[in-house]
């Protein structure tokens, strides 16, 4: 179903209604001076004025919500000669609504679902999420969603999908919950000119994104060029800092660390986001390292996104959000790397 809502009604009425039932997460820069908000970031929203719906991109992605870094799994404790275990994983007490998620990030959730779909805490959180997406007004600086079929429009993965059409949002439902929302009185029927306005907006963004990247060429190049010398050139610029992995909405590698008190009488097991760029990542027992060389680690990340996942799951696991290039200290851009291959 398609409807429209005036921006004023969105910020006043819909926001208030949502707030009653949900914990609201959205793009914001509310913290002012602190670096956390130097870029818009997904965070708790108490007041509609803190929402920054016109944002282009965020540094961290939404994966922190469903797959939090540093999440404690359980605690152990010595009690006499026994060891006591306490489950520390927590389910959400209130449902959350995610406001303003861009199409690439909506697609990224589907990638996470494939990886964590069997984890009951994860699925519980996903079930307790209402996704209100937002299509992009213009192409972000280094994104290439249209080349990997994750934008600028979204077909699924949302409950509602908004498009800014000037004084209002065009709203498309993507689920039954979305349909129900659209039946609220401040959503009005979409007129033909609204539908046109939406199409125009998306076309504009689509045009801006055109030619950024060709998936077919890339996947075939990767299949052939594993040993190309260009890889050395890219790897030389890589600081193995792991920033690309952290900001990537589809990087899901983690390690499990122990946080123990000094005398080990008590401790916790925590999930820590890992990076395939780190030397220890592919370290095996017996001091055997699968990818000791920086170059092979650099290559691995790209092959993982564009080759292995295609071979195994029939779909690349990069959603083209551009974050890895934006936040790479060397601005190493997958697209550039690919086009040169």
């Amino acid at each position: 179903m398609d409807k429209v809502i005036r921006k004023h009604d969105f910020l006043k009425l819909l926001f208030a209604d949502l707030k009653e039932k949900y914990h609201i997460i959205g793009p914001t820069r509310k913290g002012g001076g602190t670096s956390t908000y130097a870029y818009p970031t997904f965070d708790d929203i108490d007041r509609a004025i803190d929402l920054e719906m016109g944002y282009t991109t965020t540094m961290g992605s939404l994966k922190k919500l469903y797959f939090p870094d540093n999440e404690a799994l359980y605690q152990y404790q010595r009690v006499g000669t026994e060891v006591e275990l306490v489950n520390l994983r927590q389910a959400w007490d209130k449902e959350k609504v995610i406001l303003g998620l861009h199409p690439c990030d909506i697609s990224a959730l589907a990638v996470l679902d494939k990886v964590f779909g069997l984890d009951q805490y994860y699925t519980d959180k996903r079930n307790k999420s209402l996704i209100i997406g937002l299509t992009c007004d213009s192409a972000c600086s280094r994104g290439f969603c249209s080349s990997v079929n994750s934008g600028p429009d979204a077909q699924s993965g949302f409950d509602l999908l908004l498009t800014d059409i000037g004084d209002g949002y065009f709203c498309r439902s993507g689920s039954e919950r979305g349909e129900r929302l659209l039946s609220l009185e401040y959503f009005k029927a979409a007129a033909p000119e609204d539908i046109q306005a939406r199409a125009k907006k998306l076309q504009k963004t689509e045009d801006e994104l055109k030619g950024r990247f060709s998936l077919d060429e890339v996947t075939s190049a990767l299949a052939e060029k594993y040993n190309d010398s260009l890889w050395d050139e890219f790897a030389d610029k890589c600081y193995t800092c792991g920033a690309c992995n952290m900001v990537c909405p589809t990087c899901t590698c983690f390690t499990i660390n122990e946080k123990a008190k000094g005398d080990h009488s008590q401790g916790k097991r925590v999930v820590v986001w890992d990076s395939c760029h780190f030397e220890r990542f592919a370290q095996m027992a017996g001091n055997f390292n699968l990818r000791e060389e920086k170059k092979s680690r650099f290559k691995h990340r790209i092959y993982d996104k564009f080759h292995f996942s295609l071979v195994r799951q029939g779909k690349v696991s990069c959603v083209g959000c551009g974050r890895c290039a934006d936040f790479c200290p060397s601005h190493i851009d997958i697209r550039e790397a690919m086009s040169r291959l």
Binding site: M59, D69, M246, V247, N257, D274, F278, F327
Partner: peptide, 23 residues
């Protein structure tokens, strides 16, 4: 990430240690 290092922060502010990670 290596997990073998204990980390102590002494600061009145909840400083960001690893902003890309939100740590």
């Amino acid at each position: 990430v290596g997990g073998d290092t204990k980390l102590v922060v002494i600061d009145p502010k909840n400083i960001e240690l690893w902003p890309e990670k939100g740590m």
